Computed example of a mutant assay.
Amino acid sequence: MRRHGGRLICDARLSSLSRQPKGFYAQTGQGTIAASMVINAAGAWGDEVARMAGLSPIGLSPKRRTALVFKPEKTAVMDDWPLVIDFAETIYFKPEQGRILASPADETPMPPCDVQPDEMDIALTIDRLEKLSTLDVPKILNRWAGLRSFAPDRAPVVGPDGDCGDFIWCVGQGGYGIQTAPAMAALTKARALGRDLPDGLAGHDVRAACYDPARFRHPKL
């Protein structure tokens, strides 16, 4: 990015985003930034950023997902163990560098926030682990939570806003952001620049219309 003249600005909380005849002005904790285009990749805050720009939200639903890491005392963890998910999808766990990463697979609706793990979710994870496996949980080494954001149809939202072609949505990954990052980047680039999808996407039957924000627009009566 730097080789192409880009600049990464950290600790720059967005306080306002105004649309101008020739672009946008973003007020941030690091000053005012002028831009001809905005890519809204704000995750759980995606609808909030759209509202700042005077645009309609798409109805994102941020949902908490909890995870914890522990090392069992009674069982040696093998790196070639598979990811295990119960049939009802109330828990999953997998090996993580000699330890176990586990989650209750929770999807608790939350407002956009700096989310923290809930103690009840931690307790449920341990209870389900000990009931469904021979693993013991002597001590939790790490715990955290994150917000996985979903559009109303649970598919990602990528493309120009219907009311402002220079406001590009890139939200709603639903927890699969890392796994889909290369494809999402290629799709976002193509939509932002008005280009055809690259062969790597089109060749796998990826269709831009499936992710277009316009699918949430209601026809005028």
Rank of each mutant, 00 (worst) to 15 (best):
R3S: 15
R3F: 09
H4P: 00
H4R: 10
G5C: 02
D11W: 06
R13T: 15
L14D: 10
L14A: 14
S16I: 04
L17P: 00
R19S: 14
P21V: 00
K22E: 13
G23K: 13
G23A: 02
G23W: 15
Y25I: 12
T28E: 12
G31E: 11
G31N: 07
I33T: 07
A34W: 09
A34G: 10
V38H: 09
V49L: 15
R51W: 09
R51L: 15
M52N: 08
L55D: 09
L55E: 14
S56E: 15
P57L: 09
I58L: 12
G59Q: 06
S61T: 13
S61W: 15
R65Y: 04
L68R: 01
A76K: 15
V77A: 03
V77M: 12
M78V: 04
W81Y: 07
L83N: 05
L83K: 07
I85P: 05
T90A: 09
Y92G: 03
P95G: 09
G98E: 01
R99D: 03
R99V: 03
L101M: 14
L101A: 14
L101I: 05
A102W: 04
A102P: 02
S103G: 11
P104I: 05
A105L: 15
E107W: 04
E107I: 01
P109C: 10
P112Y: 12
V115L: 10
M120D: 13
M120K: 07
I122H: 06
A123F: 08
A123D: 11
L124Q: 14
I126E: 00
I126Y: 03
D127W: 01
K131A: 06
V137M: 04
I140G: 05
N142H: 14
N142D: 08
R143K: 13
R143C: 00
W144K: 02
G146Q: 02
R148C: 10
R148F: 06
A151R: 11
A151C: 05
P152H: 07
D153G: 08
D153V: 02
R154C: 06
A155K: 06
V158I: 15
V158S: 03
G159E: 03
G162M: 09
G162F: 04
C164Y: 03
G165D: 03
G165C: 04
D166S: 15
C170L: 11
G172W: 05
Y176M: 08
Q179S: 05
A183G: 12
A185T: 05
A186H: 14
L187Q: 02
T188L: 02
K189N: 12
K189V: 04
A190F: 00
R191D: 02
R191T: 11
A192H: 04
G194R: 09
R195M: 07
D196F: 13
D196Y: 12
L197T: 07
P198E: 04
D199E: 14
D199W: 00
D199M: 06
D199G: 11
G200K: 02
L201Q: 02
A202I: 00
H204D: 08
H204I: 01
D205P: 00
D205N: 10
D205E: 03
V206R: 04
R207H: 10
R207Q: 09
A208S: 08
A208W: 00
A209W: 08
C210G: 00
D212K: 06
P213Y: 12
A214P: 00
R215D: 14
R215W: 02
F216V: 05
F216I: 04
R217Y: 00
H218V: 15
H218K: 15
L221R: 12
